[in-house]
Design a protein around this nucleic acid. Structure first.
Lengths: 351, 351
DNA sequence: ACCAATGGGACTAATTTAGTCCCGTGTAGT
DNA sequence: ACTACACGGGACTAAATTAGTCCCATTGGT
């Protein structure tokens, strides 16, 4: 039995001391490189690892004091102890590298420039979603630009992002808007609510858009002429940083209480993915779009960054379809989804 | 199945990022206190935890940003998330507190002012000895005074101390001497070797004492008059910081290749412990002392600090006996030994 | 015998962290 | 209802730590 498998305690630890795993990975990487290249000099290693000499030196000093490596005039080498310790944490290293490589493969397969893969599978462990939220929040914050308009959709994953966003460490002068109107879900998973809490966490402002979930053509027309909507809608469509979730078509349709015959129709159309209220088939074609007020697929062209966050092996197909349907710049997913995405690609390649 | 049980990976992690695991424990302690006292003010909590307001404030800010606690005008309280996280790492906390309480009980039972208990049992897992060495080295370093003479014995535990002593982070102007002559063991576990490497790590100087292990009365007399010995022996007996291991009497005797009849005699005398070449029974009486050149039991009176390091459930009896036999100021042991020590005390109290 | 790369020392600039004091506010006790 | 106290949080400064830069004696490989 392996402690790494029981990751739930790790996620708590990471919550309490987030810099721990980064620092740990950093030092493991250093030890690994030394093992491979020993004996190697400080400067050469610094170049090799893409860090500065001075910082690396501090790390090496530490590791030497810990008795994990020795320094001779030929360079630094691991001690027996160092190798033993490295051996014990090798699983980390493997998983680290594994996820990194996985991310690169997903990036190639889906044509998404930046992909982050977090550990485990959202479908298996609920805390994975939390982790997904953490990494998404982290990345989102790093991408923010002053006076930017951030558009965000609803769902449990988006809620996790808002929840895990650090609360007002510094104030960001941004505006957060819901990408679409209410989706008739629980209030804490609605885009409006999420936009609001996210804005609060960021120290920015938010805007609400209260419109019903499902509309018919007629009320749609009316609403579009409504001054409330006419004032707010352009603001939403101006969003330059769009964060959204991707869902399974049928599952989403049912959650939104779409009539059974329409669900059957969607199935018939082989719809597999849903995002922004649009339904896509495996080829990325739009097979149906819900009549709602909000961001349209075309608006994504004007966005600076389109960020997708979705995990769980069950969503692999949906993510792949969405990636074909529209431009995604950043994808944050988990091992469960990522593995299936690269697998199916291998499958097609084999044929 | 429980990840904490598989502690070996944690010991490696602690080796790689010691400062962060300390940080982890610190934050766990803070969360625990808040849970117990909430809502509580920053200043009151600082007093409660024996830290300064400013440092605690930084921690609280962090934990708040992480969404683990909220601050109202009544004070800070845990959020649901905070309680959940605390719950996940509760095992840590329990083990932490458990060991601390255990240490206090051992301290009372044995009458040793300062007791440190490290996790697990040296008899079960070999890495525990390493941990023992780490804590001992840490403590030893903090106790050092300039120009002090440090006496150290042999054995695997002492070797672990020397190995885990940080290598010359700063230079200590100390002199390290072997407490007794060679003990006929493997060279890396001999007092001479250990004293030498320890001195090097500390940036101090060392002194060797090369005399045979087992002596008869005659050669003993001769050696005591030998100029080599006459020069070195007083230096050894002047040691003011004495670090030593405690062994099981019979096991030690056999390792030193004492003749079988003498071993039987020791058993007959109910010798259970060995330290500095002296054998003690359960009551702490000296039943036999090996004729070797070196530190004598009386010399401990003049020592500033006497530090004992011994772990493993099999050594519990020996440690208890040694504690009765002579003054020990600091004891570093493990859970395996500590549990048995307090248990046997309970046993006697019940009678 | 030389040369290039090594670890480690030394000094300074930049950044982070800790100490101290204060203020407006909400709350508990009277 | 009122007052006094403890609350969080802001602000500023001093201290400590960390990173950048340059140098040098030494050594191992060619």
């Amino acid at each position: 039995m392996n402690s790494i498998e029981d990751v739930s305690i790790w996620s708590a630890v990471r919550r309490l001391v987030p810099e721990l795993s980064d620092e740990l990975q950093k030092r493991i990487r250093i030890l690994e490189r030394i093992l491979a290249l020993q004996p190697i000099g400080r400067r050469a290693l610094a170049v090799e690892m893409g860090t500065t000499e001075r910082v690396l030196r501090a790390e090496l000093d530490f590791l030497r004091v810990q008795g994990l490596l020795t320094a001779s005039s030929a360079g630094v080498s691991l001690t027996e102890d160092g190798e033993a310790v490295l051996d014990r944490v090798a699983e980390f290293a493997v998983r680290m590298d594994g996820r990194k490589e996985l991310a690169e493969r997903v990036s190639r397969v889906l044509g998404i420039p930046q992909v982050v893969v977090v550990e485990d599978d959202s479908d298996q462990n609920s805390w994975v979603k939390d982790n997904l939220g953490y990494r998404a929040a982290e990345l989102l914050r790093s991408l923010l630009q002053p006076d930017e308009v951030v558009g965000i959709t609803g769902g449990t994953t988006m809620a996790a992002i808002a929840r895990r966003m650090p609360a007002r460490a510094v104030s960001y002068p941004v505006k957060v808007v819901p990408a679409r109107g209410g989706l008739g879900e629980k209030v804490e998973f609605q885009a409006n609510t999420i936009a609001s809490t996210l804005a609060e966490k960021l120290g920015g402002e938010s805007m609400m858009l209260h419109v019903p979930d499902r509309l018919n053509e007629e009320t749609m027309e009316q609403l579009l002429n409504d001054p409330y909507v006419q004032q707010r809608l352009p603001e939403i469509r101006k969003a330059t940083l769009v964060v959204h979730g991707i869902g399974e078509a049928v599952k989403m349709a049912k959650r939104r209480q779409v009539p059974d015959e329409e669900v059957a129709w969607l199935e018939n159309q082989q719809a597999v993915a849903e995002a922004f209220g649009y339904y896509f088939n495996q080829q990325g074609d739009v097979v149906y779009s819900m009549p709602t007020i909000g961001l349209r697929l075309d608006d994504l062209q004007n966005a600076r960054v389109v960020m997708a966050v979705a995990g769980g092996s069950s969503k692999a197909r949906a993510v792949a379809a969405a990636a074909k349907a529209y431009r995604i710049d950043v994808l944050i997913t988990d091992e469960g989804a990522a593995r299936l995405i690269v697998q199916s690609q291998d499958y097609y390649q084999d044929k």
